[in-house]
């Protein structure tokens, strides 16, 4: 009967069996209460053990289950099916732009490589005090909206510039982290960090498409962080030119 059944179209690919990926249709009874997309996947897996996807915290903080849900990237565990069902249908695909290992599982090597490239750790070689390094609440506030990233890759894999140059464009997720350390009053390698980003690709391939902001499940704004990095780069360049003149 109309309204009682839910059709799930799921991207399937097992490299040992399938020459090409394909979409498989599953019909399940519509759950009585609203459930998350991850719960839906659990139901499918009970029907068909071979369905593969990543999951861990099931509450939106570990970043395991980023996927493409009805055309938009998001975390399965905090996306209620009611918010994505269209005409009783849900389509689930892996995050776009990365190689597929199996079903909804993508190979994130390139994504992590970009993260490592920005040196995602505090750099301060001065002798540490016996207690903590002091930081005012205002200085600390600058890290809000940056440190909360969960590395789910929803943003970078929705970014056309990242699809095009995943090896050279750092991508929104890693750039957000680049700015997290540039913005930290305790980090002393600002200039080195900026130098490493000043080539035409690392930052400047961002054209402000804003898909990253649109999909971030944590409500973060990588585009804004990228804008901040760009103005720091401009300022840095001017300073260098100015000091050359002297």
């Amino acid at each position: 009967m109309f309204g009682k059944k839910l059709q799930v179209s799921l991207y399937r690919y097992n490299p040992e069996e399938d020459k090409f990926p394909y979409m498989k249709k599953y019909t399940i009874d519509k759950p009585e209460r609203d459930i998350m997309v991850l719960d839906l996947l659990h139901l499918l897996k009970e029907q068909d053990q071979s369905v593969s996807y990543r999951r861990s915290c099931r509450e939106g903080v570990c970043g395991s289950d980023g996927m493409n849900i009805n055309g938009k990237n998001g975390l399965a565990c905090i996306t209620p099916i009611s918010s994505v069902i269209k005409r009783n249908k849900i389509e689930l695909r892996p995050l776009p732009g990365l190689p597929v290992i199996r079903d909804l599982v993508v190979d994130m090597t390139e994504f992590y490589a970009q993260y490592e490239k920005i040196k995602p750790f505090l750099q301060n070689e001065t002798t540490a005090p016996e207690q903590e390094r002091l930081q005012s609440p205002e200085e600390r506030d600058k890290l809000d909206g940056l440190y909360e990233c969960i590395l789910c890759a929803c943003c970078s894999t929705s970014c056309p510039s990242f699809w095009w140059n995943p090896d050279k464009f750092v991508g929104p997720a890693a750039l957000l982290q680049a700015y997290r350390f540039l913005a930290d009053s305790r980090d002393l390698k600002t200039e080195e960090r900026l130098d490493a980003l000043s080539d035409p690709f690392s930052v400047y391939r961002c054209h402000g498409i804003m898909n990253c902001v649109n999909v971030c499940p944590k409500g973060l704004n990588p585009n804004k962080a990228i804008g901040e990095i760009k103005s720091m780069l401009h300022k840095n360049k001017k300073d260098i030119i100015a000091s050359d003149r002297i």
Binding site: E132, R133, L134, Q135, P137, R140
Partner: peptide
């Protein structure tokens, strides 16, 4: 152990005096 974490960069919230 906690001060080491702070030195590693853990973004603790702060009091007005700058301490954790």
């Amino acid at each position: 152990a906690v001060f080491e974490l702070e030195h590693m960069g853990l973004p603790f919230s702060r009091f007005e005096n700058g301490r954790i």
